[in-house]
């Protein structure tokens, strides 16, 4: 991980309040692995914003991030335009373990979907069959559907049923049981439901939390590992954990 400058190559709105930014940087594009994140500085804001890496293009030395406009920091970041420079710490965190499985299931919820794309692409290139279940609040929030379909079988779920299946990602889990491992990222209630429903399977989950330093020094983003005071730092030990490793 280094403190790097990244030039914005493009800014696109890909869904409701959802921005895709392509950033140019040699070091980060060559070293990042799926599941890692960038700690992005936003002018006028004290704290950096942790944002997952959604895609990497080593030839073009570019890194794609997606974020949702939630508060003043992400709103300000969404106003940045191509050509501007971002101050970034990255790539941060551990990333998903890459295994040689025959088939994996990716389960993403909302803005937890992006890191799974980079993972799915990487695994597909290694010959793994990819099945994806992507959950969104509503039809307007859906993004990257075609990109995931290009990787393999994909199920889209919306909470209000305005697109794809109606309900939650757990409602369509039963449609597919033929996979060796699952990888999931999304809101904590979703991860709780998934890790409970897929107890019999090996899985990895990626967690999000409000962060301070983003490098492991400030202890802002910890997650308990047991009831005896054990813990992991999400920014440094994570954000990816095995499903049994942490207490959600």
């Amino acid at each position: 991980m280094k403190n790097e400058k990244m030039q914005i190559m493009s800014v696109n709105s890909v869904a409701l309040d959802t921005i895709e930014m392509v950033l140019k940087n040699s070091y980060i594009s060559q070293t990042a692995v799926p599941g890692q994140f960038l700690h992005v500085g936003v002018d006028g804001h004290t704290l950096r914003r942790p944002i997952s890496i959604a895609d990497v293009n080593k030839q073009e030395e570019s890194v794609t991030i997606l974020f949702k406009i939630i508060g003043s920091g992400t709103r300000h970041l969404s106003s940045y335009q191509a050509g501007m420079i971002l101050n970034v710490l990255g790539p941060n965190g551990n990333g998903f373990p890459i295994q040689d499985d025959a088939t994996v299931l990716l389960i993403g919820g909302g803005i937890g979907v992006p890191p799974l794309y980079n993972l799915g692409k990487t695994l597909a290139e290694r010959g793994t069959k990819i099945i994806s279940i992507l959950g969104f609040q509503t039809a307007d929030s859906v993004f990257y559907e075609q990109k995931f379909r290009n990787l393999g079988e994909t199920y889209i779920v919306t909470n209000d049923g305005t697109y794809g299946y109606e309900g939650y990602v757990t409602d369509v889990l039963e449609l597919t049981d033929d996979f060796d491992r699952y990888y999931s990222c999304g809101p904590v209630p979703m991860l709780e439901a998934i890790t409970a429903a897929l107890k019999h399977k090996q899985g990895f989950i990626s967690l999000e939390e409000r962060m301070g330093c983003g490098v492991g020094a400030c202890f802002a983003c910890v997650i308990p590992t047991d009831t005896q005071g054990g813990y992991k730092k999400i920014c440094k030990d994570g954000p990816v954990f095995s499903a049994q490793e942490v207490m959600l």
Binding site: T46, L47, G73, E209, R210, G212, C218, V222
Partner: peptide, 13 residues
């Protein structure tokens, strides 16, 4: 958690 929050020109921890 949450253990931190950003404020105008600062943060809470």
């Amino acid at each position: 958690v949450p253990r931190v929050a950003e404020t105008s020109s600062g943060m809470l921890n």
